[in-house]
Design a protein around this nucleic acid. Structure first.
Ligand code: MN
Ligand code: MN
Ligand code: ZN
Ligand code: ZN
Lengths: 139, 139
DNA sequence: TGCCTTCCTGCAAGTTTTCGCATTAAGGAT
DNA sequence: ATCCTTAATGCGAAAACTTGCAGGAAGGCA
């Protein structure tokens, strides 16, 4: 598993949720599935870890993880994709044509967010923005 | 209907799609359902206009409209919402707490997009961005 | 450790969304 | 106006996702 499991499980517990073997397996599966993984990829990894784990539990676990911020959910062409949350929020540029993704420099987005915050009196609270466009090689 | 129907139907046709009575009804329903309408709201309006219109046709029509840019799709708390596309792209700030939405000043977002374009050699192609945060009165 | 409360899980049923296929109709051409 | 080609629709079935409920396990407390 690529995450510091202890830390994530403690956070789960601190948020008032029980740390079950099923939730641990789903969290491991999210990590194993790599970034921006669609649900079927996660289900596949889960059933490898524990074939008896019910699909409805996977959906419910993901909802809990997103709720608590352990996992971030984003949209990729109208489909939900999941990835383990890093300590830092991060944002992407995504090519409509080839699907490739670039992680944005944090300074760029935070200055934009600060501008929005001051202009609109909004506290921006975005941990995974995906902006669509067309990359250099696809233009 | 709130859209200039003629124009939209011509665009559909120009994109190589057939202009059917069902698609006209779905487009009218999207307008009638107002902005950021979830699918069930659209289905409700559709069945008022034509009770015999099958739900699968509604899903397929929406996919065509999003594909051709006549309708924009956005995510509202993990749910797909639809709205008729204006001639100009527009973006929002959305409060996580009360759900209220603000339409962003176009200059603000376009300067951000231009900066991204020059830094990353990406042609930004975003017609409906929704940025989450917490509004002044909810902070 | 063992008990107790409450949350979580699996299962089955319900709901939503997608898909394949036969029939229908749009729209270009004559 | 009629014909022809092919895309679009409705329908039924499948797949994806959600929900209610009864049994089982987490974790707090003694
Ligand atoms: Mn990411
Ligand atoms: Mn909008
Ligand atoms: Zn590309
Ligand atoms: Zn608010």
């Amino acid at each position: 598993m690529s995450h510091n499991q202890l830390n994530y499980l403690e956070e789960l517990h601190a948020a008032g949720y029980r740390v079950t073997s099923q939730r641990q397996a789903v969290l491991d599966a999210v990590c194993a599935a790599g970034s921006h993984a669609p649900i079927e990829k996660i289900l596949l990894h889960v059933s490898k870890l524990d074939p008896s784990l019910n699909a409805s539990t996977v959906y419910r676990s993901l909802a809990v993880f997103v709720e608590t911020g352990l996992v971030v959910m984003a949209m990729d062409q109208g489909r939900k994709v999941y990835e383990i949350a890093n300590t830092q929020p991060h944002h992407h540029l995504r090519c409509r044509v080839c699907g490739s993704m670039v992680t944005l420099n944090a300074a760029t987005t935070s200055s934009f967010f600060e501008q929005l915050a001051s202009s609109y009196a909004y506290k921006i609270d975005m941990d995974h923005l995906v902006i669509d466009g067309i990359c250099k090689s696809c233009q």
